[in-house]
Every structure is written in structure tokens, then in C-alpha cells.
Amino acid sequence: MLNAVKQSWLTFRSIFTGMGVTIRHFFGKSVTLQYPDEKMELPKGARSRLFVNIDDCIGCNLCARACPVNCIDIETVAATQDVDLGKTSTGNPKRFWLTLFDIDMAKCMYCDLCVHPCPTNCIYMVPEYEYSEYDRINLVYHFSNLEPEMVAEVKVKAELEAEQKKRDREEMMRKKAEEKAKKELEEKKKAAEESKKEDKEEE
């Protein structure tokens, strides 16, 4: 009997304790974030989407080589002598046309390894995480800002210049070889004359 009373007392006490806890939470603040309306600020250094500031890229290819999953695709064309591509905001001269700079975010594993090698800090993560797509192909982000015609033109120009350079070099080589041969011939002549002179003096 006494035990039953004790048990009942304990039961009621625990029930009221529990109800006290729940009522405190009832009037407490909710932790819910109304997601599409309110968004949590991402912590510093959050890795969510890669972005390339293409104006600062020098086309060094270091990021593509650092990528463990090969999700960065870069194609560069050397700038011809008649154009000056200017400098990056960090002061590095730009020497390449970036005809292709694609990042496949479907492949990306958010390792951040491409960010650190960049000499001009132009590839980095941006706090943007709502970019789901219906088609996987839409996850390939194109960062190159050259028009297709421009790319073709630049390529042709670069090829021409390369050919020109090759020809120039060949010409130079030939000239050099000719000069060398001339010199040698003259030296031989001189040597022959000198030896004649010496012969005369001896006589």
C-alpha cells in the first residue's frame, strides 16, 4: 500500500517534471529556419561552387593539373605579338587566350585543391549551393568569355604566327650557317695568305 502510494507519487512527479520541460520548450524560441525565405549564412571557407574570375586567369593550367578528378578543362592559345592581353589585377602579364575553361560541377568533389595553386587567386569557391539541374550537362560551367568566331580567329592567327616564327627561325638558322661558312672560308684564305707571307719573309 505504502509502496503503491510512493510509486504513484513518483509517477506524478515525473509527469509534471516532463510537462514542465515541454512547456518551457513551448514558449522557447524555435530553431526552424524558413528555408526558401530565410537562409543560413554559410561559414567562412564553405565549399559549395567553384567560380573563375576569367579576367585574372593567366592560363597556367595549374588548377587543372591539381584536380584529382579532372573536372577542369582548359585550352589555351598563345597570344600573337600584335595584341597585348594586358595584366591581371595581381600584376602578372597575360600571355594566353583562354579559348576553353570548363568546370564540370557534376564531377567536382569539392576538395578545394585547385584553389591553392592558382598564382593569381582567380579560382575560388563561392557560397552558392542552389544549383541543381534537370540535365547533367547543365552542370558544366563555361568560364571562357571568348566568342566562337573569336576563338577561331585567334587560333588561325596563332597558327600563322607559329608558322611564321618557324620559317623565321629556319631562315635565321640558314643565314647563320651561311655566315659561318663565309667566315670559315675567309679565315682559310687569310691563313693561306699569311702562310704565303711568312714563306716570302723566310726567303
Binding site: H25, F26, F27, G28, K29, S30, T32, Q34
Partner: peptide
């Protein structure tokens, strides 16, 4: 709503 508030949620909104 009561369930939500007690569990620190908002319930239907």
C-alpha cells in the same frame, strides 16, 4: 502547432 512549438519547431507555416 503545439507539437511543433514543444519540439522547438514552427509547425505548419
Amino acid at each position: 502547432k503545439i507539437a511543433g512549438f514543444i519540439q522547438d519547431r514552427l509547425g505548419p507555416m
